[in-house]
Computed example of a mutant assay.
Amino acid sequence: MLLDVTQTGGGFILVEDTVQCSGRGLLRCFINAALKRGEDVHVLGFESPEAEVCAGLDSSCVHRLHFHKGFPDPLGWTRRSSFTVERFTSQHITQLFKDTQRAKASVLVVDSLSMVLRHHDPVVFSQTLQELRKGGVIKTIIGLLHSDLHQQGIVGIVCHLASTVISVAPADNERNSVAKTTRRTKSGKVMQEEEYFSVSEDATLSVQAKPRQPGRGQKEPDVCETDPTSNLTFNLRLSEDERRAKEKVALPFVFSQQKKSALLRPAPGSGRIVYEPDASDDFDEEDPDDDLDV
């Protein structure tokens, strides 16, 4: 899956690394693959110089790489950078793409998003990414995030915005690293895969499937369940004769047809209550409540 994401691109691809394993080599692989596809690549370099980013790239395609210098003055204190963190807005970035002679859908690479997040509100940062994705000028956004520099809530917000998240970690051997790729399609389907990868000096990506751990695919043996009613002094089950006898017993709250007819049929000489007022009764038909002290 990692090789497929590198070759096709599209959407917002997040490379998540830590101090134990750097994802900058994988970032160079994405840049090299986009240049070979004939796409223009704009790099916002806040943490690495241009020489380090361009090292090993295909010399025949490097003219399509536009490096916007943010290193070594990302905050613009000495005015030695052509692009500062403060200018990380959809308006400024879109203008950079429009000023390019080959104006078409291009690739934006941010090295790194951690520098931007340290000086921008996460809500404003999220709005900027959404505007860039919907603007139509940028085809692919690739960002490097140092996850161990931020709170988990901030990392979760950025991962939620990304269509593909690649988390890199060190492997058992020094030659390879482990990449856990999580890809979310437009239909909402989520795919995950862990692979070994290595980056050569010419920014070529080599991917190897991670072998499964032994014993994980084996089926667990069935566990014998004991019967909790086996040692009871009384029987909880009914025999066939007991079941038939139980079904013949009439329930007390169920009326038979004969009982219903007897209750609904008016009997001759049924009792009635007749009230005849005597002389001591003081009843006023116009004011029935006259005897009440109200």
Rank of each mutant, 00 (worst) to 15 (best):
V199W: 01
Q213R: 13
V199M: 03
E193N: 10
G217N: 02
L205Y: 02
R184Y: 04
V199H: 02
G188N: 02
K189M: 06
Q213P: 01
S187C: 09
E195G: 06
D202V: 08
R212H: 02
K210F: 08
A209P: 00
V207M: 00
L205T: 01
F197T: 07
R184D: 03
V207G: 03
Q208D: 09
Q208N: 10
P214R: 11
S200W: 02
E194L: 04
P214N: 09
K210G: 03
E195M: 10
G215H: 00
D202T: 12
P214G: 05
R212I: 00
S200C: 04
Q218Y: 00
Q218A: 05
V199D: 01
S187N: 15
Q192A: 09
S200G: 14
R183Y: 14
G217K: 07
F197C: 02
E220K: 15
T204M: 13
T204K: 14
V190H: 08
K189T: 10
Q192V: 12
K219D: 09
R183I: 06
A203I: 01
T204P: 01
E220H: 04
E220W: 07
S200M: 04
S206V: 12
S198F: 04
Q218E: 12
K186L: 12
V207S: 00
E195H: 04
K186A: 14
A209T: 04
Q213G: 00
Q218S: 09
E220M: 12
K189A: 13
S187Q: 15
K186V: 06
T185L: 13
G215K: 03
R212E: 08
S200N: 11
E193S: 10
Q213N: 05
T185Q: 13
T185H: 11
A203G: 01
S200E: 11
P214C: 07
A203M: 06
K186H: 09
V190I: 15
P211D: 15
G215L: 05
S206D: 07
P211C: 09
S200Y: 04
R183K: 14
V199A: 07
R184A: 06
S200R: 11
V199F: 06
E195P: 02
E193C: 08
E220Y: 07
V199E: 05
Q208L: 13
R212S: 10
S200A: 11
S187W: 05
T204E: 15
T182D: 02
F197E: 00
R216L: 09
S198P: 01
M191K: 12
T182V: 14
A203K: 04
